[in-house]
């Protein structure tokens, strides 16, 4: 199928983009990498009358690391992140997640901001952002706004962004020492959206006792969501019994949907197993860095 008619605008800055958004309201859509929007347009499920192509805004294409934080510009392409030594070194969870996202041709176009703004609940990046405690920086008519990831995702494909706001960058906290990570997902084929997945981060002290555990599920409901159950690992050494309890609590906690691929039951059971598996790997990685 072919897309319905629209007019393409190419804002020269984020400010200009916001002006267009203010002018056109919900008639306008931001086009970044286009890897989610254009399939919907080709199927005529999305028919914006104005497209604002910000993919070429060089000011939003950057990776910047400093003492406190790690910032990524909104139109930075995922393939560029994959190749970026800073990402591999400083953001291992993000680095591990990238190859799961689509395929080469997709990652060559997909932007970080686009993936976050699209807010597909089965997508990896929103969950990584959540597990890392990241922040979304947006720009709107009233200036800049910082939104913590756990307040950002509101429902299926819907976020805290106003109609006239656009993502400028995301910020991830610097990775602490003695911190491990893992991303685990079940998808029907390589590169597909996950049936269910989990991105997690575990920190421990010098004795190997867990001091912090965060796990974000994706593919389990309307938004990526932090698993309450993971926090029960704190104070343990993530032994088999502790992990078994987390798995059980996770299965009880999840309230996922059924779709044409798998049932809610499947997601609950497998969610528990993935929690156990991923937290165990993350813990081992955390302890490896203290010895």
């Amino acid at each position: 199928m072919k897309p319905a008619p629209f007019r393409l605008e190419t804002p020269r800055s984020l400010g200009e983009c916001v002006e267009f958004l203010t002018e056109h309201g919900d008639e306008a859509k931001i086009l970044a990498g286009g890897q989610s929007l254009v399939p919907l347009m080709n199927l005529r499920l999305a028919q914006p009358s104005v497209l604002l192509d910000i993919g070429g805004l060089e000011a939003l294409d950057f990776v910047e690391k400093n003492e406190q934080s790690f910032r990524i510009g909104a139109v930075t392409r995922l393939r560029d992140l994959e190749r970026d030594a800073n990402v591999a070194e400083s953001q291992p969870l993000l680095a591990e997640a990238l190859p799961y996202i689509g395929h080469i041709q997709i990652r060559n176009r997909t932007t970080v901001g686009g993936s976050i703004a699209h807010a597909d609940p089965a997508a990896e990046l929103p969950a990584v952002l959540l597990a890392c405690g990241g922040t979304i920086k947006s720009v709107g008519p009233n200036g800049e706004r910082e939104i913590p990831a756990n307040n950002f995702f509101e429902s299926y494909f819907s976020t805290n962004l106003e109609e006239d706001e656009v993502i400028a960058e995301i910020e991830l906290p610097r990775w602490k020492p003695a911190c491990g990570w893992s991303i685990q997902e079940v998808s029907r084929r390589h590169g597909d959206f996950s049936l269910i997945g989990i991105a997690c981060r575990v920190s421990c002290d010098e004795e190997g006792v867990v001091t912090e555990a965060a796990a974000a599920f994706f593919g389990v409901g309307a938004t990526p969501s932090l698993a309450e159950s993971a926090s029960s690992l704190v104070g343990t050494k993530a032994d088999d019994e502790a992990l078994r309890q987390v798995a059980e609590a996770t299965t009880a906690e999840l309230d996922p949907p059924t779709d044409i691929h798998v049932s809610a039951d499947y997601r609950k059971q497998v969610g528990g197993a993935l929690a156990r598996r991923s937290l165990s790997i993350a813990y081992q990685r955390a302890t490896r860095s203290i010895t």
């Binding site: 199928m1 072919k2 393409l8 190419t10 086009l31 286009g34 890897q35 254009v38 399939p39 080709n42 199927l43 497209l51 192509d53 993919g55 070429g56 393939r79 395929h103 080469i104 041709q105 997709i106 060559n108 176009r109």
Partner: peptide, 27 residues
């Protein structure tokens, strides 16, 4: 497919493999 799934339309855009059904010539 024109749905960004099959890869048949892959071309190189500025050296990178991309799906040409998901990019507009106007861009």
């Amino acid at each position: 497919c024109e749905q960004g799934s099959c890869g048949a339309c892959t071309v190189l855009l500025d050296g990178s493999a991309i799906r040409s059904c998901l990019v507009f010539a106007s861009q």
